[in-house]
Design a protein around this nucleic acid. Structure first.
Lengths: 130, 130
DNA sequence: CTTGACCTTCCAGTTACTGGAAGCCCTATC
DNA sequence: GATAGGGCTTCCAGTAACTGGAAGGTCAAG
């Protein structure tokens, strides 16, 4: 099938699919006219990528997951380890954002937010309390 | 003062400071030998940037904040609006990450995580439930 | 036969820096 | 005076993961 159809089925833009091929994540065949020709297996792989990416795995992590996916004898523990490490990483990111959020919200709360020029947010950013 | 000293005082790497200059966030003078020459005001500006960036504002948002900072007559409401929009954006990001986290954690929980090859995580990524 | 959709490749741009090379400048030491 | 070092300069390239656009080939429909 052509790239457009594969794109539809995998829920990925054609551009992204070509990019994935360029960086070696899959290698579809070619039709006589030079068009890429995707098998069901290729589409499967693309869907796998789509889902992993949307779950926040980086391309390199997807590469690892794909190799586990390809290895029919890999231990499920290996996959679980990758997933759990990702969970921990997301937790760290959430905590960091939470702290940013709190700082910003506090600053905004202390700003009277009217037409006057003085503003605790700007003062803080400028370090005028230091 | 030279870029190294300014870097130290603003807690930013020299490379980053040159980059900020390149994209027009500040324009220090030059000494006779061609070296950049930073005033206290420049350092102030750099600290402002350092703090805003660390609070998660993009460069373009920093540009806006700087223009508000430079405008001694701006209304504090304008600044507050930027800050609150940022808080909302961070909230959205946190919610998204939370949802990713939960999905991944659920997948990991259902994976027995032993030496056997079958693994619900991979199955889910491959879309084998669909 | 032409139009339009779809495909191809290649180049450039995005965000916010970061690393590295080649080459001045300045100070200190031998 | 030569040299070693550290800091400074510029410019080029690379990062992550695409995305947009140009120039041109292919195909099915009307």
């Amino acid at each position: 099938m052509n790239i457009g159809t594969a794109a539809e089925q995998a829920n990925l833009p054609p551009k992204t699919i070509r990019y994935y091929e360029e960086i070696g994540l899959l290698s579809p065949g070619r039709a006589e006219n030079g068009y890429r020709d995707y098998s069901d297996k290729d589409v499967h792989r693309l869907r796998f990528l789509q889902r992993s990416r949307s779950l926040g795995f980086t391309i390199d992590e997807c590469r690892l997951l794909l190799s586990l996916y390809d290895d029919k004898n890999r231990a499920s523990a290996d996959v679980k380890a990758v997933a759990l490490e990702k969970v921990a990483e997301i937790d760290r990111k959430i905590a960091e954002l939470q702290s940013l959020r709190d700082t910003l919200a506090t600053l905004a709360k202390h700003c009277h937010g009217d037409g006057r020029p003085d503003c605790p947010i700007i003062d803080d950013l400028a370090g005028e309390h230091a």
